[in-house]
């Protein structure tokens, strides 16, 4: 069975361990059953847009992909330790 292309609005609700079937549906309510091969292989379609929202890759299972979907919030600023040096000498 050929790999399934996932559109950007597809929600991945759960990922059971292989072998498995995975069901996808989008926020508008329509359902799409994606038949996944016994090897948990999800193909990410190369398009001029980034689709995946969160990707966890374990080196021990190279060649297969377990995907956890999480909506990414805007990146929060964080400096390294000691990057800001506050001088209170004049106060």
């Amino acid at each position: 069975m050929p790999p399934v292309a996932l559109p950007t609005h597809t929600q991945l609700m759960s990922v059971p361990p292989p072998p498995a079937m995975v069901r996808f549906w989008n926020p508008s309510g329509s359902t799409t059953v994606a038949a996944v091969t016994t090897l948990p292989r999800l193909s990410l379609v190369t398009q001029p847009e980034l689709y995946m929202e969160r990707l966890q890759v374990s080196p021990a299972t190279q060649g297969s992909v377990r995907a956890h979907v999480r909506i990414g919030a805007p990146l929060q600023f964080q400096a390294g330790p000691g990057d800001f040096i506050l001088d209170h000498d004049d106060e």
């Binding site: 995946m52 969160r54 890759v57 080196p59 990414g72 805007p74 990146l75």
Partner: peptide, 22 residues
């Protein structure tokens, strides 16, 4: 702009990448 921001996964063995707007 959506960037792939990678952090250490929960078990420390895997990298987890989130798509975050910056």
């Amino acid at each position: 702009c959506l960037v792939l921001h990678a952090v250490e996964g929960e078990n420390g063995a895997a990298a987890v990448a989130d798509l975050r707007p910056v």
